[in-house]
């Protein structure tokens, strides 16, 4: 079953169309990435899914149930990590998580257990009694996540959960996201950091001016632009190169030699780097450096939307 099903969803603010007729679905177990510039409509779409905004047109189904008709069911099964920190600074970390988890109907011993579990999960197990005002940015971000997961949502929506924090905290958060996913939580993830999305997302939608302009796995998105990758191998001397054998390797389209650099153009979908290197080693060429150039998601984004994600 699809955890999330969005059909022809639109949102108007007056005359302005923030989300324009988008249709998409997220399957169970996916980490679904939303890529888009500021104001592209990501947050609006997410907020409609999380029942924070009214839907102008279209339908949203969570776990097969329409959220307009089964609002409580949908809300029980969704957790949201808002872009901005949404915690009470005058309450301890423990109290914050307990308060929000309590709103989901958790009580007594179970509530306590879940709160402890959530805090431990984000690495704040030893900070129960601390106040968030004394936290670093990364710790606040982690608390922000803990508040969203204590009720064990089936679908977790994370809106820029790593903005403005140190690399260590970011790695921790990315690790937690993967771990949550392995535990069976389906995740919708938005980020400005292309490499994060590239690293953790199983499927990605590029959204621009309220429309989904491309959707698919990383490979599928990259294949929009080209299905070729360039492998440059620097060797000590290319004299002994057996060009025809190299060209015979599956996927390899062209082999060029420039001075001491062997340039191989190959289908990007086929992983043949090992075989190419083995062939070169069999020819007794001393390999100095190998560089593989695939179009990055950044390139895809730039090509499709005409702007970089970062230059906001």
């Amino acid at each position: 079953m699809n955890v999330l099903e969005v059909k022809q969803l639109s949102k108007k603010f007056g005359d302005f169309i923030a989300v324009d007729n988008i249709t998409m679905s997220v399957k169970e177990g996916e980490i679904f990435g939303f890529l888009g510039a500021n104001g592209a409509g990501k947050s609006t779409a997410i907020n409609m899914i999380a029942s924070l905004l009214r839907v102008t047109k279209g339908e949203i189904e969570v776990l097969g149930k329409n959220i307009a008709k089964h609002s409580k069911f949908a809300k029980m099964n969704i957790g949201i990590v808002p872009q901005e920190m949404a915690i009470y600074e005058d309450m301890t970390a423990y109290e914050n998580v307990r308060f929000f988890a309590g709103l989901y109907g958790l009580r007594g011993a179970e509530l306590k257990e879940r709160v402890i579990e959530a805090l431990a999960f984000v690495g704040l197990g030893d900070k129960h009694k601390s106040y968030p005002k004394n936290f670093s940015g990364g710790m606040k971000r982690r608390l922000n996540i803990a508040c969203a997961i204590a009720h064990r949502p089936k679908l977790l929506i994370m809106d820029e959960p790593t903005v403005g924090i140190d690399p260590q905290s970011r790695n921790y958060i990315l690790g937690s996201v993967k771990k949550l996913n392995e535990l069976g939580c389906t995740i919708i993830y938005t980020s400005h950091y292309m490499e994060e999305v590239e690293e953790i997302c199983t499927r990605i939608a590029i959204i621009d001016h309220g429309k989904i302009i491309a959707e698919g796995t990383k490979g599928q998105l990259k294949a929009i632009i080209t299905n070729q990758k360039n492998i440059s191998i620097e060797v000590r001397s290319a004299e002994n190169l057996n060009k025809s054998k190299l060209e015979a390797i599956a996927g390899v389209n062209r082999v060029e030699v420039e001075d001491r650099i062997v340039k191989v153009t190959s289908d990007s979908e086929i992983n043949n780097l090992n075989r190419i290197i083995q062939q070169l080693m069999a020819d007794d060429l001393e390999i100095r450096a190998v560089e593989e150039n695939e179009p990055s998601l950044e390139t895809v984004f730039l090509t499709l939307t005409g702007r970089s994600l970062r230059d906001q």
Binding site: D15, F16, H209, A223, I224, I225, T226, T303, L304, G306
Partner: peptide
């Protein structure tokens, strides 16, 4: 592109803050 055609018509005019 490989699986997509992109045609952009752009001008250097005043644009519009809100596209209606």
């Amino acid at each position: 592109l490989r699986t997509l055609i992109k045609v952009e018509v752009s001008d250097n005019g005043q644009g519009a803050q809100k596209v209606i």
